[in-house]
């Protein structure tokens, strides 16, 4: 079965919850403790109501911390959040590598 998508690349993987959390964390990280909900929503490409639920969840898990600035909540990534990102990106790479290896394992080994 041909698994390639447009341009010969593998078809795009459906974004899962962990992908969305990682995206949110990466955007929050760019604001160095001053990430406002609207800004994060534009960066992550998520509607504000859905984003708020994700932010709440990430705060509960200790991956983000929140505080009030000028009467509005702002967010910052925690060391635990950074740990999540490091693991997430490394794991994503391995998932991709293992997929590639599975395809290349059909080829005869070189001398």
């Amino acid at each position: 079965m041909d698994r390639a998508g447009p341009n010969g690349r593998p078809p795009a993987r459906r974004r899962e919850a962990t992908d969305l959390y990682a995206t949110v964390l990466e955007v929050v990280k760019r604001y160095h403790g001053h990430a406002r909900v609207t800004r994060v929503s534009y960066g992550a490409g998520m509607p504000v109501d859905r984003l708020k639920r994700s932010l709440d969840r990430l705060v509960v898990l200790g991956l983000l911390r929140s505080e009030e600035q000028d009467g509005r909540p702002v967010y910052d990534i925690t060391p635990r959040g950074q740990e999540f990102l490091d693991t997430y990106w490394r794991m994503r790479a391995y998932v991709e590598l293992l997929g590639t290896d599975r395809e290349s394992s059909a080829r005869p080994p070189t001398a």
Binding site: V27, R30, Y31, V40, G43, A44
Partner: peptide, 9 residues
């Protein structure tokens, strides 16, 4: 050309 560029998305 800029000193600092920050893009959320």
């Amino acid at each position: 050309e800029a000193e600092r560029v920050s893009v959320g998305g």
